[in-house]
Write a protein that binds this DNA or RNA. Structure first.
Lengths: 223, 223
DNA sequence: ACTAAGTTTTAGACGCGTCTAATGCGGGGT
DNA sequence: ACCCCGCATTAGACGCGTCTAAAACTTAGT
């Protein structure tokens, strides 16, 4: 039986781990989870004992296959819940994250199935993030770019907006920056600011925010 | 900030406490919650420190007004969740209890309101139990009787069926014993068994089960 | 009133997840 | 090649919720 907290560490490791990238470091997890580094070290030891992560001391951790499966299960719960709250309980797109975080550890298999069914087995959640399948197959690599890395003059489509901060989300949603929106990147200023046009309006975004908006460079056909 | 466990103790104290009755005893709570008596004692001390219960050593506890409010809040969550699962997520009446127990500590005010709204502000849950109002006003006294206490020959209407055991519930539901059903009490045998007629069928029930079925002696108009 | 049975509380321990303070490792700049 | 600084780990503590074993209280029966 995995504790809620262990599940949180696995989920955090998953989202912090870039495909094929370097191991996730202690301090990154500490910051992401809002705990101190020693706390992370001791939790990582337990996770390694249970073979949910592969750990190399002083280097960091990577999820084992089993650990990844657990992370995908929690992520599936999270994203199904977000979708359900938005679609059936009249939640606003930007206020769904916190509630899903609270519930994701506590729903049964039956609940998961019924919610997925009620939604028609969706593939992405309201933020644009992919929902793991019931079989928890690894998610396909991400071929989007961060808005912060786009050159001036390009036109891109918003693919996903990070769900980490409800406040930012509400701000962006109000201004029309949500999955599917078309953006013209007008200027990338050297003062940590990017300017875009969306639906005729001009929007200024600090780089930190622009980094959490994933975009597609050219329109492509999707199934 | 109350822990989940504290909320469980308060809820348990609420359901074990008969209106105006004697204080709830340590061993009753221990059995109900599946923990040992010393564990209950130490938790009760903490609850008394926070003035959520009034405790008299060696005698038992009663909920304070504040403790009762917390219990009613959890009960409201529980019963709204049961209702929602049954009505909107295709759960069977007899399998909602466990899921509601897992979720009841983790939903927000917003969630509670939206679920209540989606259901049309119901007054009772699928088991027939009353749902506390949003203002958490104390629930009216119960004027029902236990089926086990009914005399032979009487005809009664099922008001509520305890939601403590999903297995029993499924069994009873299959045989038509659910809120609103009319029962003729045929025999009350001295061997811990009562026999009733429901919808033409004859059903035999051990007294322990009959004790958990609350019935109304005569039909009365209800708003 | 005394005593025995049953219940409750006290005492002391443990695992979990967290912290702070102290120590240890390792990679980059001179 | 060395040293330093940043990051990670070890050491030791704490609160929570739980347990078992032992002591204390209550109460019912004689």
């Amino acid at each position: 039986m995995l504790s809620d907290v262990m599940e949180d560490y696995l989920k955090a490791t998953y989202v912090l781990q870039r495909e094929g990238g370097p191991p996730v470091r202690t301090s990154d997890l500490a910051e992401y989870l809002g705990v101190t580094p020693p706390t992370v070290t001791s939790m990582l030891e337990k996770l390694a004992d249970r073979e949910l992560v592969e750990r190399e001391k002083y280097k960091g951790v990577e999820l084992s296959d089993e650990g990844e499966t657990v992370a995908l299960e929690i992520l599936r719960h999270h994203r199904l819940l977000e979708s359900y709250l938005a679609e059936h309980l009249d939640y606003d797109w930007s206020e769904v994250h916190e509630e899903a975080d609270a519930l994701e550890h506590h729903i049964s298999e039956a609940f998961e199935r019924r919610v997925a069914n009620a939604l028609g087995e969706p593939r992405v959640d309201p933020h644009g993030d992919p929902i793991p399948t019931e079989e928890l197959a690894p998610l396909a690599d991400d071929d989007t770019a961060a808005l912060a890395d786009i050159e001036e003059g390009e036109t891109v489509t918003v693919a996903r907006v990070s769900d980490r901060d409800d406040e930012h989300l509400a701000y962006l949603a109000e201004r029309g920056i949500e999955p599917g929106a078309e953006l013209d990147v007008v200027t990338v200023a050297p003062i940590d600011m990017v300017t875009v046009h969306v639906e005729g309006d001009e929007i200024h975004l600090p780089t930190a925010i622009a980094a959490s908006i994933r975009v597609e460079r050219e329109t492509r056909a999707t199934a």
